[in-house]
């Protein structure tokens, strides 16, 4: 093991070290079968620095707060869903349709995440559902502390459903656990079937996948089976719902899934 950079001989397998821009030249090469070449080229470099061993996960702060949210939701029997997708896949439309059809039987609360505007919150508010808008500004995803603050403001009753619409973005929200009970990835038929392997983390971390805008299928040449196969390659446990938020087609199966989770 290298005393300077601590690389190499790791218990959980080989590591490949990139020297980065340091002034003392390291030559590092590692191969997958554990062979490790290592040399320090500047013998004179003096190592009198103090090293602080940190070993801290960069997302740890969010993870701790996510665990707090999750505990809160469990204690109050709140079923919390984190809805993620590209911009325009239909998150708000699916929410509107679902709330319109089910709010007589299920108490819903909504958190809307967008970089700017209250537009989506206004769409939910029109349905008389309690809603809070989080504007993240430059931030491209929601984080647990934002959800915690929104939840406090919403004053959620026990035994209810919390819908969290994340910022439209298939990249970063995958890394930020919000403490949700389930993660729902939405993709629309206009997006191309290889999206799951282009943005694998989002599909890998989701529990269900809603394929929206199936009313448009006659006008498109997307192969939905191919899309599902790509998604299953990323996450073999993924469960699919094919819907149209516009026509209401297929929504029943998604409603049944939702109700089944409330028991």
């Amino acid at each position: 093991m290298c005393g300077t950079c601590g690389c190499g001989t790791d218990d959980n397998g080989p590591t490949i070290l990139k020297p980065g821009e340091q002034p003392h030249n390291h030559v590092h090469e590692h191969t997958h079968d554990g062979i490790h070449f290592h040399s320090h080229e500047d013998a004179e470099h003096n190592h009198q620095h103090k090293v602080l061993k940190i070993e801290q996960d960069i997302l740890q702060n969010n993870q701790v707060l996510a665990a707090r949210n999750r505990g809160y939701f469990e204690a109050k029997n709140i079923f919390a869903l984190n809805l993620v997708s590209s911009p325009g896949s239909g998150k708000t439309s699916i929410l509107e349709k679902t709330l319109a059809d089910l709010s007589a039987e299920i108490p819903f609360y909504v958190i809307e995440g967008d970089q700017q505007t209250l537009n989506d919150a206004n769409r939910i508010d029109a349905l008389k559902i309690p809603v809070i808008q989080i504007n993240t500004g430059k931030g491209c995803h929601l984080e647990s502390d934002m959800v915690y603050n929104a939840v406090k403001k919403l004053n959620i009753k026990d035994n209810s459903v919390l819908m969290i619409e994340n910022v439209g973005n298939l990249v970063c929200p995958s890394m930020f656990d919000l403490g949700e009970s389930k993660r729902v990835v939405i993709i629309s038929t206009t997006e191309g079937e290889d999206k799951p392997i282009k943005y694998p983390d989002m599909f890998h971390t989701s529990d269900i996948c809603i394929i929206n805008k199936i009313d448009l299928l006659p006008y498109l040449n997307i192969d939905v089976e191919k899309l599902k196969n790509y998604a299953l390659k990323v996450n073999p446990n993924l469960q699919f719902f094919e819907v149209s938020a516009t026509t209401g087609e297929g929504m029943e199966a998604w409603y049944n899934w939702l109700k089944k989770n409330l028991i």
Binding site: K50, V51, L52, K53, E55, Q56, P196, I197, D201, K233
Partner: peptide, 30 residues
């Protein structure tokens, strides 16, 4: 890639053992 399948049996079911790390290991201060 997270979606690579088993080279032996082609299954997509797998447990990730490593590669998801995002960690500050150490800081060297003066």
């Amino acid at each position: 890639n997270i979606y690579d399948s088993c080279p032996k049996c082609n299954s997509n079911f797998k447990g990730i053992l490593q590669g998801k790390e995002l960690r500050v290991k150490a800081l060297e201060v003066i």
